[in-house]
């Protein structure tokens, strides 16, 4: 209903523009700004909630209550933390490459927001239904590597550098199986457009059942892409102090933190779209289904994070190149043959 209302509102505004002879590009810019604002609000609200959720889940996994003092159930904990981080001194190390150091968090953060342009929240609720949706997501995901390399290199710190090199190796290795797993879905749906993929799942079944192997590969690779335990090597606290963001503090650090959760949410929503049919589902409104499915993956990732130890850098490479890549390739070939037959 809301969707229809927004659509009719848009049409009436458009009619007003035409009637008064105002240039239509103003309207286009206005709608784009509104869409970006909507996506940003959605991400920031979610990240606030995600950080709280992570703390609660980790608390309950570890026999403790998690945050309880700030607000009901400690819900305001993240706000309090954000305030603390904002009030901190902005430190740029003396030896740092100033501009690269300042730019790195932005290069990390912006793509994690841009992914949301193509994610369908509900029927027709999508900032832009690109016909190359998946390609677009994959391209944006690889922006993480330069940003981490920039952060690690410009910090002028050996731990940062090692974290950055680790992350470059890791992200490149895991992007390949990730994309191959996504391709399995694309072959089944016959389209790169995310709305088409959802439509294809509505016609048959969730691709989780048609692509179980692809799903497992996707999930493992997505965990590695979003730097979460057991693949949190770029910032392995007990080894590299804090990895690429060792020298970051205050708000710059919090942007990296924000990016991490935005990426997690992005990966989870993409998983929901590709493998669990996105917003489609019975009884409940589509948007609620979308949130439920996304948070199912978020919970899974958090559960894994607080249970498993970290794997080692060489084992990570072995897993990526020697196991996930062949499995993903075979999966893709089998899927292709199946579709042709």
């Amino acid at each position: 209903m809301l969707v229809d209302w927004v659509a009719s509102l848009y049409q009436s505004v458009q009619a007003t523009f035409v009637a008064h002879g105002w240039p239509l590009w103003v309207l286009a810019v206005l709608t784009a700004v509104l869409k970006v604002a909507g996506v940003l609000v959605w991400i920031l609200l979610n990240v606030l909630f995600l950080i709280w959720l992570e703390r609660k889940i980790s608390g309950h996994v570890q026999n403790r209550p998690g945050p309880v003092y700030t607000g009901r159930f400690g819900l305001l904990q993240t706000l309090a933390d954000a305030l603390k981080v904002l009030l901190k001194e902005d430190v740029i190390p003396a030896g740092a490459d100033r501009w690269v150091f300042v730019l790195a968090p932005l290069v990390a953060f912006v793509p994690s927001v841009m992914i949301w342009v193509v994610i369908p929240f509900s029927r027709g609720v999508q900032a832009q239904d690109l016909n190359i949706g998946i390609l677009y997501v994959a391209a944006l995901a690889s922006f993480t590597v330069p940003s981490l390399l920039m952060a690690g290199w410009s910090s002028d710190n050996k731990w940062s550098l090692m974290g950055a090199l680790r992350s470059a190796a890791q992200l490149i290795s895991y992007e390949v199986p990730l994309i191959l797993a996504e391709l399995g879905v694309v072959v089944l749906a016959g389209s790169l457009r995310l709305s088409d993929i959802i439509a294809a799942q509505q016609r048959s079944v969730w691709f989780l059942f048609l692509q179980p192997v692809g799903f497992v590969v996707y999930f493992i690779a997505a965990l590695a892409e979003s730097n979460r335990t057991p693949f949190d090597l770029p910032e392995a606290e007990s080894e590299l102090v804090a990895g690429f963001n060792t020298e970051y503090s205050g708000f710059r650090w919090s942007i990296f933190f924000l990016t991490e959760y935005a990426n997690l949410l992005g990966m989870a929503s993409l998983a929901a779209t590709l493998f669990l049919g996105g917003w489609s589902g019975p009884f409940l409104p589509p948007f609620v289904w979308f949130v439920i499915k996304t948070y199912f993956f978020v919970f899974l990732a958090m559960w894994i994070r607080w249970t498993l130890p970290r794997i080692r850098v060489d084992q990570l490479m072995d897993l990526g190149w020697k196991f996930l890549l062949p499995v993903a390739l075979v999966n893709l070939v089998v899927t292709g043959v199946f579709v042709v037959l």
Partner: peptide, 8 residues
């Protein structure tokens, strides 16, 4: 366990 990256 903490050194190995498992906090729980």
């Amino acid at each position: 366990a903490l050194d190995m990256g498992a906090t729980t």
